[in-house]
Nucleic acid binder design. Structure first.
Length: 653
DNA sequence: GTAATTATGAGACTTCCG
DNA sequence: CGGAAGTCTCATAATTAC
C-alpha cells in the first residue's frame, strides 16, 4: 500500500495529466515542440540571441554582434579558446589595434581566474560534461561553487548564447537594447532604462505589462506574444524568458554533441541525445516551480517500519504499482542512497529519475545490521524472492560467541548501520576501565554511557567488560559478501572498512533484483555506476543470474581490484570492463559499448552519500556537495543509455 | 627519510516518541 | 515540544612500515 509513503496520489495524477497532454505546463520536448522552437529561432532572429546575450555579456555587449567593427579580432581570440565575454572586455579596454597587448591581458586574466584547488574538481566535473573550461571557471565564480544547480543552468544558457552568437550573423543585434545591463532573470523592476521602447505598448493590463517587459528586454513583440501564448497567461516574466532561452539551449546541446558520431547521426538517438542537458534543466526548473508552490509538501516521509514494497516474512506486501511512462525500461535502472538525507534531497532524486517513488528499506529486515536506504528503480515488484539460506538476523545468531559476555542490560538485538569508521582502541579501553570500577552490575550512569557508545560504534562483547568493533570479515558477512571478499591484494584494514561501509547489503538488493531471474535466463548486461566492491554484481551472481557483459565504473583502484579479483575467482564467463571515471562515459563511449553487445539490461548505481549522511559533520551539503552531485552523472548516463538504446532499436526496425 | 597507516576528536540534522 | 537516537564522515596529528 502507498500509505507508508507521503508520495502522493496527487503526484501520480499530475503525471497522468502531463502524459495526456496538458498544454500550458507540458514541458515534454517532443518533436513538434522541437521543430516549432527551431523554426521560431530561425524565423525571428532579431531578438533571440541578443537579449540573453546582453544580460550575460554585460558591458561587453559588442562581442555578440556579428558586424560590429571589432568582431573579427574578437572571433580570432575566441578561436584561441578564450571566452567571448572575456575577449570583448579586454578588446574594449585595450583597443583592437594591439593584438599582442590583448593577448597578454587575456593570458593574465585567464591566469587570475584559474580554479583554486578546492573547486577544481567541480570545474573538472562540468568540463567533463562538455563545457569549455573558461566558461565553467567564470560561471563557478559567479554562482559560487556551492550551487551546482545554478551553475549548470547558467552554463547551459551560456552555451546557447555562444552558439547562437557565433552561428547567427545578425545584423540587427548590435543596436538592440544595448542599454540593458544586469541580470536578465533577476531584475525586472527597472523600467526606466528602456525609454526608447516605451511607446510599443501601454502597460495597462498585466499581459500588456509583461509584453512590454519582454520587448524592453530586446525581444520582438511577435516573439513575446508567441511565448506568452505558449506559456499561458499566468506565467511569470522569469518563465517566459526561460522559455525563450530554451530555443538557444536546444542549439547549445548541438554544440555539446557535434555531428561527427557517425553510426547514429542519421538515427533518432542523436537527436534525442542532444537534449539531455535541456531535459536536465527542465526537470530542475520543474522542481523549482513545484518547490515554490508547495513548499510544505517538500518532505518525503520515511515509512515506519521501513520495509519498502515489502520484505520477506512480512505480511505487508505491495505487489503492484504504476510507473510513470517515462520511467519504463529498457533498461531497468536501480539507484541507491542513504534514506536519511537532508530535506528535499529525495524529492529531487525522484524528480530526476522520472518521478519514480523511492522505495525505502532498512536492511535490518534482511540481516543483523540496520541499513536504511532509499532505492529508486523501475523493476517489477511482484514475485520477489530472497536469497537462501537467510543470513543470521540477530546479533546473537551472527556472533554466538558474544552471548557469553553480553550483559543483560545491553538489550540490543540488531546492530546499527555499518559505517566506514570503527571505534578507537582508546574508547574500548575507556569502557573497560569504566566497567571494571564497579563489581557486578554497573551503576545506571555507566550503563547508559557504555550502551550509548556501543550503539554509536556498533561494539560487541568479546570478553568480561570488553567490547570491540567488528572485524572486517564480520562486516563482510553481515553485508552478505563472500568471506574475504575485500581481503588481501594490497588492501589495508582501513580500506576494507571504508569499502564495505560504502557498499550495498547484498540480501536486500538481491531481493529487489530477484524479479530479473525469469526475465534474463540467458544472462544480463549490466552497467554498474559507482560500483564500489561490486555489490550489484555479487547480488546478481548469488541469485544465479549469469553476468554477460558488465561495465563497472569505479573511481577507486582498490575497489576495482576487488571486483576484478572476485570476477576471476568466481570463474565468470562474461566480460568485465573497468572504467575509472564517470566522466569517461560520454555519449560516444556509451554508443560504442552498446553497439558491442546490444544494450544494457540494467543500470545500477549508488552515488556518493558523504554530503548527505548525518555522519558528516563538515560537508553535509546535500546533493550539491561535490561528491554527492555525482548523482547527476547517474541521471546523465541513464538518459544517454535510454536514448541510445531507443535510437538503436528504431534504426534496426 | 619518506610513505603509509592508525588514532583522535571534531557536531549537525532529522525523525521519532512520549 | 523537547529530548533521545541515529547517521555509507573528515582532517590532522601521531605512529609505524618500508
Amino acid at each position: 500500500m502507498l500509505r507508508s509513503f507521503s508520495w502522493p496520489i496527487l503526484q501520480v495524477k499530475k503525471m497522468v495529466d502531463n502524459n495526456s497532454g496538458g498544454e500550458a505546463d507540458n514541458f515534454d520536448w517532443d518533436t513538434e515542440d522541437d521543430l516549432e522552437i527551431d523554426n521560431y529561432a530561425i524565423s525571428a532572429p532579431s531578438g533571440l540571441s541578443t537579449p540573453c546575450g546582453e544580460a550575460v555579456l554585460g558591458s561587453a555587449e559588442a562581442g555578440s554582434s556579428g558586424n560590429s567593427p571589432n568582431s573579427k579580432i574578437i572571433d580570432h581570440f575566441v578561436g584561441m579558446g578564450f571566452s567571448r565575454e572575456m575577449v570583448a572586455k579586454v578588446v574594449e579596454e585595450k583597443g583592437e589595434e594591439n593584438s599582442d597587448l590583448i593577448l597578454e591581458a587575456l593570458l593574465e586574466y585567464s591566469a587570475s581566474t584559474l580554479p583554486s584547488s578546492s573547486n577544481s574538481k567541480l570545474i573538472d566535473h562540468f568540463v567533463g560534461m562538455g563545457f569549455s573550461e573558461e566558461m565553467v571557471v567564470k560561471v563557478v565564480q559567479e554562482n559560487g561553487e556551492g550551487n551546482t544547480d545554478s551553475i549548470l543552468e547558467t552554463l547551459l544558457t551560456y552555451s546557447a548564447l555562444e552558439t547562437t552568437a557565433s552561428v547567427q550573423q545578425n545584423p540587427d543585434s548590435g543596436n538592440c537594447s544595448s542599454d540593458y545591463e544586469g541580470s536578465l532573470l533577476n531584475d525586472f523592476s527597472d523600467f526606466d532604462s528602456f525609454s526608447e521602447s516605451e511607446e510599443i505598448m501601454s502597460p495597462s493590463s498585466e499581459e500588456g505589462r509583461k509584453l512590454l517587459h519582454l520587448t524592453k528586454m530586446g525581444y520582438s513583440e511577435a516573439e513575446a506574444s508567441v511565448v506568452m501564448e505558449r506559456c499561458g497567461p499566468d506565467s511569470t516574466i522569469e518563465e517566459l524568458t526561460d522559455f525563450i532561452c530554451a530555443a538557444q539551449i536546444a542549439k547549445a546541446a548541438d554544440a555539446l554533441f557535434p555531428l561527427e558520431d557517425k553510426p547514429f547521426s542519421n538515427g533518432s538517438s542523436h537527436k534525442k541525445r542532444r537534449n539531455w542537458g535541456y531535459d536536465l534543466l527542465l526537470r530542475k526548473k520543474k522542481l523549482k516551480l513545484e518547490k515554490r508552490f508547495d513548499e510544505d509538501d517538500d518532505a518525503v516521509h520515511l515509512p515506519n517500519p521501513m520495509i519498502g514494497f515489502g520484505v520477506p516474512n512480512e505480511p505487508d506486501q505491495i505487489t503492484n504499482r504504476v510507473l510513470p511512462e517515462a520511467a519504463l525500461g529498457p533498461p531497468y535502472f536501480y539507484y541507491e542512497n542513504v534514506a536519511l538525507a537532508p530535506k528535499g534531497v529525495w524529492t529531487t532524486i525522484s524528480r530526476f529519475l522520472y518521478d519514480v517513488e523511492p522505495e525505502f528499506v532498512d536492511s535490518k529486515f534482511f540481516c543483523a545490521a540496520a541499513r536504511k536506504r532509499g532505492y529508486v528503480h523501475n523493476l517489477p515488484i511482484d514475485n520477489r524472492f530472497p536469497l537462501l539460506p537467510f543470513p543470521p538476523r540477530t546479533i546473537h545468531e551472527a556472533f554466538p560467541l558474544t552471548r557469553k559476555w553480553w550483559p543483560s542490560w545491553d538489550t540490543r538485538t540488531k546492530l546499527n548501520c555499518l559505517q566506514t569508521c570503527i571505534a578507537s582502541a582508546r574508547l574500548t579501553d575507556k569502557i573497560r576501565k569504566a566497567l571494571e570500577d564497579s563489581d557486578g552490575e554497573p551503576p545506571l550512569g555507566i550503563q547508559k554511557f557504555v550502551l550509548e557508545q556501543c550503539r554509536k560504534w556498533n561494539l560487541v562483547w568479546v570478553g568480561r567488560n570488553k567490547v570491540a568493533p567488528l572485524e572486517p570479515d564480520e562486516v563482510e558477512m553481515l553485508l552478505g559478501f563472500p568471506r574475504n571478499h575485500t581481503r588481501g591484494g594490497g588492501i589495508s584494514r582501513t580500506d576494507r572498512y571504508k569499502s564495505l561501509g560504502n557498499s550495498f547489503q547484498i540480501d536486500t538488493v538481491a531481493y529487489h533484483f530477484s524479479v530479473l531471474k525469469d526475465k534474463f535466463p540467458g544472462g544480463i548486461n549490466l552497467l554498474s555506476l559507482f560500483s564500489g566492491i561490486g555489490g550489484a554484481e555479487v547480488a546478481l551472481h548469488q541469485l544465479g543470474i549469469p553476468l554477460k557483459n558488465v561495465v563497472a565504473v569505479e573511481i577507486a583502484e582498490l575497489n576495482r581490484n576487488i571486483l576484478r579479483s572476485w570476477w576471476e575467482q568466481t570463474n565468470q564467463r562474461g566480460t568485465l570492463t573497468d572504467i575509472q571515471d564517470v566522466q569517461e562515459l560520454n555519449g560516444d563511449r556509451l554508443e560504442q559499448l552498446i553497439k558491442n553487445f546490444g544494450g544494457f539490461d540494467l543500470v545500477v548505481g549508488g552515488s556518493p552519500c558523504n554530503n548527505l549522511t548525518g555522519s558528516n559533520r563538515y560537508h553535509r551539503d546535500g546533493l550539491e556537495g561535490k561528491d554527492s552531485a555525482l548523482f547527476f552523472d547517474f541521471c546523465r548516463i541513464l538518459d544517454l543509455v535510454k536514448c541510445i538504446m531507443n535510437g538503436t532499436k528504431s534504426m534496426i526496425i
